[in-house]
Simulated scan of single mutants.
Amino acid sequence: MHHAETYFKLISSYDASKLRLTKIDDEIYEDFTTTFPEIDVTHLKEDDFKSTAAKDKWRPWINKYEKRVNEYNFGSLLRIDPAQDYTEANTMFEMGFLAYRGV
C-alpha cells in the first residue's frame, strides 16, 4: 500500500475542489453521476463495478473516453469509504480511470 499512501498524501495536500487529473474531469463526473445514480460514492461496493450486470453497463460507459483520456488504461485504487484512510480492507482496485472527485 506504499504507493497508495504516497498518492493519498499528495492529493490530500491540495484542495480537491481545484484538483484536475484530466481536462474533462467535470464532464466525466457529470456523466458518471448521470449514468450511475445508484452508486453511493460515500461507500462503494465491489458489486457496483465487478458484477456481470455492472460490467455490462460500465464497459460501454468507460469506452467513450478511450480516445479522450491519456490514462484510459490505468487502474484506480478506490477507497470504499472515502472518509477512511487507504487500508487493505478499505481499498479496491478498478480497471480504467476515474476522475478524482471522491469517486
Results as ranks from 00 to 15, higher is better:
Tyr72Gln: 05
Ser13Gln: 05
Asp40Gln: 04
Arg68Tyr: 07
Thr33Asp: 03
Phe97Trp: 12
Phe74Leu: 12
Thr42Ala: 06
Ala89Ile: 10
Ile24Phe: 05
Pro37Cys: 01
Pro82Thr: 05
Asn90Asp: 15
Leu44Val: 10
Ala83Leu: 12
Lys57Tyr: 01
Asp85Arg: 04
Glu27Ile: 10
Leu19Asn: 04
Asn70Trp: 01
Asn63Pro: 02
Lys18Cys: 11
Met95Pro: 14
Phe74Ile: 09
Pro60Cys: 06
Phe49Tyr: 10
Phe93Cys: 15
Met95Asn: 13
Asp56Leu: 05
Lys9Leu: 11
Gly75Ile: 13
Thr91Ala: 08
Ile28Ser: 01
Thr52Ser: 06
Tyr86Ile: 14
Met92Ile: 15
Leu98Gln: 09
Thr87Gln: 09
Phe36Tyr: 02
Ala16Cys: 01
Ile11Gln: 06
Glu94Ile: 14
Ser51Thr: 09
Arg68Cys: 10
Glu66Phe: 00
Tyr14Leu: 08
Lys9Pro: 10
Ser51Pro: 10
Lys9Tyr: 04
Arg101Val: 10
Tyr14Pro: 08
Ile62Trp: 04
Thr33Phe: 01
Arg20Ser: 08
Lys55Gln: 13
Ser51Trp: 02
Lys67Pro: 10
Ile28Trp: 09
Phe93Pro: 15
Leu77Cys: 07
Ile28Met: 08
Asp25Lys: 00
Tyr14Gly: 06
Ile24Val: 15
Leu44Glu: 12
Ala54Gln: 05
Leu44Arg: 03
Trp58Arg: 00
Lys9Ile: 09
Phe8Leu: 09
Gln84His: 04
Pro37Ser: 02
Leu44Asn: 05
Glu88Gly: 12
Lys64Ala: 08
Asp47Leu: 07
Leu98Asp: 07
Glu94Cys: 06
Tyr7Met: 06
Asp31Arg: 00
Glu46Thr: 13
Val69Ala: 11
Leu21Arg: 00
Leu44Pro: 13
Asn70Tyr: 06
Ser51Asn: 04
Asn90Trp: 03
Lys64Tyr: 04
Pro60Met: 03
Ile11Phe: 07
Met1Val: 11
Lys50Leu: 09
Leu19Asp: 12
Asp81Phe: 03
Phe74Gly: 14
Thr34Trp: 00
Tyr7Trp: 05
Thr6Arg: 03
Asp81Ile: 08
Thr87Asp: 13
Ser51Gln: 03
Ser12Cys: 07
Arg79Asn: 12
Phe97Gly: 11
Ser13His: 07
Asp81Met: 07
Trp58Asn: 01
Ala53Ile: 12
Leu10Gln: 12
Trp58Phe: 05
Asp81Tyr: 05
Ala83Gln: 12
His3Glu: 13
Arg68Pro: 15
Thr35Pro: 08
Met92Arg: 05
Thr34Met: 02
